[in-house]
Design a protein around this nucleic acid. Structure first.
Lengths: 207, 207
DNA sequence: CCTACCGATCGGTAGG
DNA sequence: CCTACCGATCGGTAGG
């Protein structure tokens, strides 16, 4: 039986690799996030693991494959968390709060993935780039749907539902740049504060 | 005599280069913003101007110099606009609105510069990188000062003035990724809507 | 402004 | 998992 909360028990759509391939992925995540995809060489990744670059090719096809795995997995998991958050209530203000909380928690927990996701889309080859763009579009559209419904029901006020949704998405992305575990604010505090700010942004009375 | 509004007449702290050097700077801005600093070669820049790469070195010292000029000029001009915006009123809600309007207008007018500024800080060599970081810190601190004063005066409500300032800064950055002149929204509409959202975010009654 | 060219580094392969 | 090595490309210089 499940021992975790619903949010934590979410099954990954695309599981992170384990074993040696997992070590390589982890080193790539750290280095791509710090120096960028083009600023990281296969020799850098191998060196982090005490290996030589050619040995990496026993575990992967190409450097590009690493980037595609990271970006597709990240967006799929973010969307999955989001859908669970909005599906667990019918109150539109509570949906918005939970969507923001899930957004913030994902960005706080996976800062490397999110930084890469936002910086490297232009370095993704097709068709992976279009798949990631579609996932982003779907995600943004779901936020707009929530805000539009809140406006229709007279619960939210905003000069532009579209701009409000952009602003909320963007607010979360910054978190991946400065948040780190063990800082002044816990992940939960962060989630509550940002949930509160999302509701204020559309002048909503909370649930 | 000045024929432009005060906001438009702001003197650049660091003027953009003119003539051939200006052409090179413009090509670099476009390419760095599209493909990134590491993804752009000196041959790419030269080719955009119908030149060969070595000829560029008659007008500049190095590729790194181009990046440093862009990032320092951008941050200095953003800070100058901001200081003018908050210095023109004593009402704290109006200060916040004008700060957001200036922030939004700068990001809408200079999308290439802002995209580079946010993506390439790790590719800036010292001491330029620290100078840009200091300018960013000063800018963020000025926003926090405004919000803190609004809270002290009982005009603003927020669970965290610091997070509110981060959220507002981040909201503007996204604009540089999707806004383009001649789109559905004019620059002024954008500025007004975001100014409104900034006040809502701290539950302020407008000035 | 050009051609010719430099040493360094890149992603990746051959072969074991 | 390694060494040895490939062709391509990089920022930049020499020399005119």
């Amino acid at each position: 039986m499940p021992s975790q909360s619903a949010a934590n028990a979410r099954k990954s759509t695309r599981p992170a690799p384990a074993g040696r391939a997992g070590d390589i992925m982890d080193a790539a995540l750290t280095l791509f996030a710090e120096r960028g995809y083009l600023g990281t060489s296969m020799r850098d990744i191998a060196s982090q693991l005490g290996m030589r670059a050619p040995s990496l090719y026993n575990h992967l096809e190409s450097k590009q494959e690493l980037l595609q795995d990271i970006m597709l997995r990240t967006m799929e998991n973010l969307v999955a968390d989001h859908q669970m958050a909005v599906a667990t209530t019918n109150d539109v203000a509570e949906q918005l709060r939970r969507a923001m909380e899930a957004h913030v928690r994902y960005h706080a927990r996976h800062p490397r993935e999110v930084r890469i996701g936002n910086a490297e889309i232009w370095n993704l080859e097709q068709p992976a780039q279009d798949r990631v763009r579609k996932l982003r579009r779907d995600y943004a559209r779901s936020w707009q749907d929530v805000i539009n419904r809140g406006v229709d029901e007279g619960r939210f006020q905003t000069p532009s539902p579209q701009l409000a949704s952009y602003a909320m998405l963007e607010m979360g992305i910054g978190i991946s740049l400065w948040y780190h575990e063990g800082g002044r604010l816990s992940e939960s505090q962060l989630a509550y504060y940002y949930g509160d700010m999302a509701l204020r942004l559309v002048s909503a009375e909370s649930g």
